[in-house]
Write a protein that binds this DNA or RNA. Structure first.
Lengths: 339, 339
DNA sequence: TATAAATAGTTAAGCGTTTTCCTACTGCGT
DNA sequence: ACGCAGTAGGAAAACGCTTAACTATTTATA
């Protein structure tokens, strides 16, 4: 593997000049520059990131921390899209992505890997449940960091999340406009960072705008799995008067709920309308096609990364969470209330 | 951030000694060792990987290259599991994972990132369609590499894949044992590296063991998407005599095929048995639950990584592909042939 | 024409490790 | 008392790059 000396020798200049050419520092004549580039090409030279990282402050690597304490998160295609978004944006700026999937039991090691080795310029943490340590540790260390999702603590916090409030609001409004008045809710885990509260807020607001109030007895919880949706739907569908619609906070639980509805001999959407959340591609397999709220997952990864790079270049900034728009996708699982 | 000098000073030894303690080199007294470790703890010291990478040959980073030319691959939960397996195994050996999702258009850059910067000790490439360049480039460079999937070229090649032959064999045998004799096949793309051929071989073998031969008119192709399964199923179900069973080479297409079957007023499994492939979790949403062949995806990532580390330590080895067992999971989408 | 300013390129120090000699000490057998 | 093997620890070079400081050359300015 050629090093900078080989290039310098071949181009008949000093290593300093080579370095300047490669980092686009001014005061190099066009002629010399070309000669150096020629040598670089000939030798297939690329600077060693290790050596570069030693002198510069930059390593050109960002860490992507994904805690996967709850295993089911890993069935969530959403995550893969976030990863892709991060990778994409990093690439565009010649950055590399170091993956760190910390299981709760060894968060310490994730922390070590990212921080203490000086291997990354910054980190993106995917926020899931409360109580994750890595984030705090990174902050304490002063490492530039962006969260994907909601972050505990007072604003401003550097994070990106989708507009859960609006998503829930639109979902409920859609149902209300279809004439539904008894709307059951299946929420995700209560300790899932922030998102659920936001959605509940959205629900209340939408109901309020129709002069209705939120009925707590129509609220039920699941853990994002199909099974939990199936379970959570039972008490709701057994309530009298029976809800004519369900707003379920992820698509998989929505599918579970629909399965339960069948057991109650309810047809979707004729007897029961169902709105999901996420718009994961796999639900396209299911009949009826699910009306849902689409989250811009790839975009979330992208935005978080771009913002992180900005933070790396100008450390110490704090800004308010970036909220990405969601979209109501009306498909076949919702319809007007039966008269 | 503390460096090795800080530690040396605090422990009142030379940096050489600190280094020795940290790499478990002999000839350091227990007392000194303890003193050094104490200092390390106190200062929260961790050696800089960059500096270490400069002197040692090792960077303790492996690259994970995922070409995502076909976008739909990214809806495949399978991939996420592979990633997880890689990350896991790497962690166990104190290795880090650098992600590189090369789009076809910039494979060159993926190559640069991984190779020429000297940033990784080895690479894992996920093989999908033929014609990917990165792999060849890595080999040419002499970089240790493991493939996940089938790799072009003559054996031995360093790769890990699941037992597609056996999987197809078991699927077909299962159907044959249920009495099916007209079995339609929906294959993945023909140019998808190796796997499809292996499965076709398995199909032939299973048929042969029942004294049957493969009927090419019952073969149809899709591209792994639900839609393509839906499309591919039509000609098959229109064939006379109509097949009583379908073996579909991934779960998503299987779902598509089942949807088409409904249009033909066929009930699964009463009128038509369907076997899928992969056993991705999301199919648990569908009724009937899919009989399928489970691939050990996390394990594939793990094995590939462990093998790569072995290859890094003893370069130049070539071994035969590692074949991981698959498993027939019988659920509700298959049943005895209607009499 | 003399001088200042801008441009072009070089030298050498330094980044934080590891590792190869070295040196020094200890205890043991003679 | 001497020499030697074994054990402990240190000094310093090397890894490949960047960059500050410097010199030399050219161009602009008065």
């Amino acid at each position: 593997m050629a090093n900078i000396y080989d290039v310098a020798r071949l181009a008949q200049v000093s290593t300093a000049t080579v370095s300047k050419v490669l980092s686009n520092t001014p005061y190099v004549s066009a002629k010399t520059k070309e000669r150096v580039l020629e040598a670089v090409r000939e030798l297939h030279y690329a600077p060693s990131l290790a050596a570069r990282g030693l002198t510069r402050t930059r390593t050109y690597v960002v860490g992507l921390v994904i805690p996967y304490d709850p295993d089911f998160l890993f069935n969530d295609p959403y995550l893969l899209e976030v990863i892709r978004g991060v990778e994409n944006a990093a690439n565009d700026s010649d950055y590399n992505v170091l993956l760190s999937m910390a299981h709760k039991s060894d968060q310490r090691s994730a922390y070590t890997r990212l921080l203490r080795t000086g291997y990354v310029d910054g980190a993106i943490t995917v926020e899931t449940f409360e109580g994750d340590q890595v984030g705090y540790l990174l902050d304490e260390f002063g490492m530039p960091r962006m969260s994907i999702g909601y972050r505990a603590g007072q604003k401003p916090v550097n994070s990106v999340h989708s507009d859960d409030f609006r998503g829930a609001f639109e979902a409920i409004r859609h149902l209300l406009e279809l004439g539904h008045r008894q709307i059951g809710i299946i929420s995700g885990p209560a300790n899932f960072m922030g998102a659920m509260e936001e959605r509940l807020r959205g629900i209340r607001e939408a109901l309020g705008s129709f002069g209705l109030t939120f009925d707590r007895t129509l609220l039920s919880f699941g853990d994002f799995t199909v099974e939990s949706g199936y379970e959570a739907a039972r008490p709701l569908l057994a309530t009298q008067p029976r809800p004519t619609a369900l707003f379920v906070m992820n698509d998989q639980m929505a599918i579970g709920a629909i399965r339960r509805a069948r057991e109650f001999d309810l047809t979707v959407p004729a007897d029961l309308s169902v709105v999901g959340f996420d718009d994961v591609a796999v639900t396209m397999l299911y009949e009826p096609l699910l009306t849902t709220i689409r989250q811009p997952s790839v975009e979330m990864g992208r935005v978080a990364t771009r913002q992180l790079l900005e933070l790396i270049n100008n450390p110490g900034q704090q800004f308010d969470p970036i909220v990405l728009p969601v979209e109501l996708i009306v498909r076949g699982s919702t319809g007007p209330v039966a008269s």
